[in-house]
Design a protein around this nucleic acid. Structure first.
Length: 360
DNA sequence: GAAACGTGGTT
DNA sequence: TAACCAAGTTT
């Protein structure tokens, strides 16, 4: 087992004074843990500041509209985090009188809170001795013991759980968890770990055998799949305003709760024939003959998908009011900044110099 | 329990 | 450039 005294003493003199480490407010600690899921500190930091300024308390968050919450989250990714956060806030108000539950067992019942986050909040905010096992901790422990179990495997998680639990005997559980995560982030890094500065180098199996690059054993991941999107960017000059047609993304696919445009998806690289014969055009804009040669192409890379996107822009004299139905939304371009968009759409707006104020 | 879910920095 | 991966959770 790593020497906890050396680890904690290193942490106390080297930790980064991150904003969520300057508070004991469980709400703020909870928010930071959700934002930091699969997200680097530098990426999440500005979102954290804006989010807690807009929603300073669990009451404020629970009272907000889902659209408001999504607006704050746009551009950060993994948008189910925002929906679940909102839902959990409402549960806390309704079932816990607005007080954040203090035990891991209660926390894990809330939307968006899994084993890691429940133990992180319970240990940091309420001193519950519960190991918060994230990617950093698994890397540190896998190297320390030269564990052959694959990252994220049941076996490695169990080893981490047992080890960290033992380390918490005589120390603040929140400090032990944070120290191990900080060690993984700053010293026991994925590549080129700084073993000469490591407080638990004594006893580290991978340091002793020079096998730092072997552990943790990585999981194999699937190749991204190609998808082909053809967007219709339909604008019009109506009497009082310039309008644009949007579509809200629904469940069962990427970017749920955010907005994009009317869309055709093809199974291969689209052809003019594919595009022309789609019924989308006849429902939205009869007599329009779209041509891919005039489209703006953007490639967008996600973890599991490579998006190939063509944007066909068309201005109509007048968009019928009937289009503004449950499926499609007609809004003045001036109000674009009230709607949350994924990065792909923000990139398109930026390129076309359409003011979206969708900037983060 | 494998696969899906975003984005951006690093290698 | 493509691959990796970062304070995970949900289905």
């Amino acid at each position: 087992m790593p020497n906890t005294h050396l680890l904690i003493s290193w942490y106390r003199r080297s930790y980064r004074p991150l904003p969520w480490r300057q508070t004991t407010d469980p709400y703020l600690i909870w928010i930071s843990e959700i934002i930091l899921q699969q997200t680097r500190v530098n990426q999440g930091n500005p979102y954290y500041h804006r989010f807690i300024e807009r929603f300073p308390t669990v009451i404020a968050l629970a009272s907000a509209s889902e659209a408001d919450v999504m607006m704050q989250w746009q551009g950060l990714g993994y948008y189910s985090r925002a929906r679940n956060l909102h839902k959990a806030a409402q549960t806390i108000v309704a079932k816990y009188n607005g007080q954040i539950p203090e035990t891991s067992a209660e926390l894990i019942t809330l939307s968006g809170i899994g084993p890691y986050t429940a133990n992180a909040v319970a240990s940091i905010a309420f001193k519950e001795p519960s190991p918060a096992i994230d990617g950093n901790v698994m890397r540190v422990i896998a190297r320390y013991f030269s564990a052959d179990d694959v990252i994220n495997s049941r076996g490695l998680k169990k080893l981490c759980d047992n080890t960290v639990r033992a380390m918490m005997k005589d120390h603040h559980p929140g400090d032990v968890n944070q120290a191990l995560m900080e060690l993984g982030a700053m010293i026991c890094r994925p590549t080129t770990p700084l073993c000469n500065e490591c407080p638990i180098q004594p006893g580290c199996s991978s340091f002793r055998t020079g096998s730092q690059a072997v552990y943790p054993v990585p999981a194999k991941r699937a190749k991204p799949k190609n998808r082909y999107f053809v967007y219709l960017v339909l604008t019009s000059n109506n009497l009082s305003s310039q309008d644009i047609i949007l579509k809200k993304r629904t469940k069962g696919d990427i970017w749920q709760g955010l907005y994009d445009f009317p869309l055709i998806e093809t199974t291969n690289v689209p052809t003019d024939s594919d595009v022309y014969k789609s019924s989308l055009w006849t429902s939205l804009l009869p007599d329009f003959q779209p041509a891919l040669s005039h489209a703006t192409y953007l490639k967008h890379q996600l973890t599991h998908q490579t998006l190939h996107c063509w944007f066909i822009r068309q201005t109509a004299d007048l968009i019928p009011d009937g289009i503004d139905n449950a499926e499609y939304l007609k809004i003045p371009i001036d109000l674009l900044h009230h709607y949350p968009f994924p990065r792909l759409i923000q990139r398109y707006f930026d390129q076309k110099q359409i003011k979206s104020h969708a900037d983060n």
